[in-house]
Amino acid sequence: MSGFDKVVGSYEEALAGLEDNMTVIAGGFGLCGIPENLIKEIRRRGTRGLTIVSNNCGTDKFGLGILLVDKQIRKMVASYVGENAMFEAQMMSGELEVELTPQGTLAEKMRAGGAGIPAFYTATGYGTPVGEGKEVREFGGRHYILEEAIQGDFSIAKAWKADRFGNLVFRKTARNFNPMAVTAGKISVVEVEEIVDVGTLDPDEIHLPGIYVDRLIQGTFEKNIEQRTVRSA
C-alpha cells in the first residue's frame, strides 16, 4: 500500500488487527451484498467475543451465520434475526446477546457514526420497548427518542466495483447498508468484484468516495439467494 492505493494482497492482510471483543459493522441485507469472504476470514481467524452490527445475521450456512458455529459472536445488533436455527439456540441459552434495533434507526446510527453525529432524535420506537430508558423530547407536538450513533473497530462491506483509491460503486439492492457501514468503521475493509484503474470511474458515478475506505480487496462471490422467487414464462 502506498499513497492513496488501498489494495491489500490477501484476506489475512485485509483483517490484520482484528482482535477478540471488538465491534464489527457489516454491510448487507439478508444475504444480498454481504462481504462473504471477509466473513469467512473472520471465521478462519477464530476471533471471539465479537459484537456484530448488521441488519441480519445470515443463515445457518452462509453469511454472518457461519460465525455462530464456533460461537464467535457475543452480541448481535440487528433489526431482524429469523431464518437461523443456531442463532435461535444460542439466543435462548443466553450465550448470544441480541439488541433489536429498527432497520431505519440502524442505518441512521451507522450513518451518524461515520458522519460525526453522536446521536439523533427519531420518532421510530417511541412508546415501544425500543424507546425504554431513552431520552424523550417533543418537537412540534410529536415525541422523539434519542438514539446514539454506532462506530465499529472494523467495518466490513461489499461493493461492486472500486478503483485502487477505494472509490466505490455498488450494484442494485446490494448497496443497502454497505455505504454507511464503510463510513462507520475505524478501519474500513471493502471487498469488491472488480478493481479498475484510477481514473476509469466517472467521478459523478462514484457512490462512496475512497476517503472512507482503508483496505480494499478483490474477491470472487457465491452470492447465495435466500428466496429465489420467479414467475412462469
Binding site: 444475504l31 444480498c32 432497520q103 452470492k223
Partner: peptide
C-alpha cells in the same frame, strides 16, 4: 442475486426505478 425485495425475494425493476442505500430509503 443483487436485486431483491425487503422479503429477500428476487424481484425486477419497473420502468423509472431508482436504487439507493438503506439510510436514503429510511
Amino acid at each position: 442475486p443483487d436485486l431483491i425485495n425487503a422479503g429477500k425475494q428476487t424481484v425486477t425493476m419497473a420502468r423509472g426505478a431508482s436504487l439507493f442505500s438503506s439510510a436514503d430509503s429510511f
